[in-house]
Every structure is written in structure tokens, then in C-alpha cells.
Computed example of a mutant assay.
Amino acid sequence: MSPETQPRYLQGLAKLREIDGHAGERVVASLADIAPDFARYLIEFPFGDIYSRPGLDLRSREIAVVAALTALGNATPQLKVHLQAALNVGVTREEIVEVLMQMAVYAGFPAALNGLTAAREVFAAADEQPMTA
């Protein structure tokens, strides 16, 4: 049986789609030609194992991810994906801004400023998307 038909993979793929939609699928697809095993691990471990755990809801998980990626300060592409994911799972723009401002205390003003810049870009792109019924 191929890894792509295993329950762990299928659970992870479903969770990835629930959280990230097409953006997550694009990230995975972008790895197909260089590191297909890494793409599979990305689906199985973070989404199949961790995001699927019952201890936190998806809003809380995405708030934590946005905070962590902001604090890292070197993961802007991933931060943008997770800012959109946070919106997808019901985190408001105001809550996102508050999380990013909170990071100034623990990760410094440059990290918070970079996070706010990324959020501005994600919010603007979301505003440009046509509304679906």
C-alpha cells in the first residue's frame, strides 16, 4: 500500500485542506520535484499527528503557530500561509494584530514589525479575493 493511501496521510491531507485550503496544497506540490518524501512527512506529522490531536482547537493552534513563526523572524513565507490559515479557522484580524503586537515583548520590535507587514499583505490579498456564495 502506498504512503498516500495510509490513514495517517489521509487524515493529514484532510486536516491540511481544512486549515490551509489551496495554499497548503501548493506548498506540498512545490516539494514534489525536489523532496516528495518531505512533502509526505509534512502532511503526516504536523497535520496528521499534531493538528489532529484533540487538546487544542484549530483557532488556538493557529494563534500559537502565528506567534512562533513571528518570533522566529526568518519564516515569512510560512508565516503568510499561517496568517491566512488563522483567518480560515476563525481568528479575526484584530486577534492576529494583537498576537503580533504581543510578540514585540518576547521576540522584539523587528519581529513584530515584520509580522505586521506580513499580516498587512495577507489581509490585502484576502480583500482582493472575490466573495463566494
Rank of each mutant, 00 (worst) to 15 (best):
G108H: 06
D33Q: 12
A14D: 11
N74C: 10
K15H: 13
I34W: 03
Y9C: 07
F109L: 15
Q78T: 10
T70M: 08
R59D: 13
A104E: 01
A107H: 04
I63D: 02
I34R: 03
N74S: 08
A29C: 10
D49C: 13
E98I: 06
A111E: 04
P3C: 04
A85G: 15
V97C: 02
A119F: 06
L116T: 03
F123Y: 10
L83C: 01
F38Y: 07
T5A: 11
R53A: 14
A29N: 11
L72G: 13
H22Y: 00
R26T: 14
L31H: 08
V27H: 05
A124Y: 00
P3T: 14
L31T: 07
L56K: 14
A112Y: 01
D33F: 04
A107W: 09
A39G: 15
E44V: 11
I50G: 11
E121N: 10
A68K: 00
L100W: 00
H82R: 04
M131N: 12
L116S: 07
D20E: 11
D33Y: 02
A125Q: 13
A86L: 13
T92Q: 09
S52Q: 04
D20W: 00
R40F: 11
K15V: 14
D33I: 10
R40N: 15
I63Y: 00
V28T: 14
S30H: 02
G21W: 07
P46Y: 01
I50Q: 08
A119M: 11
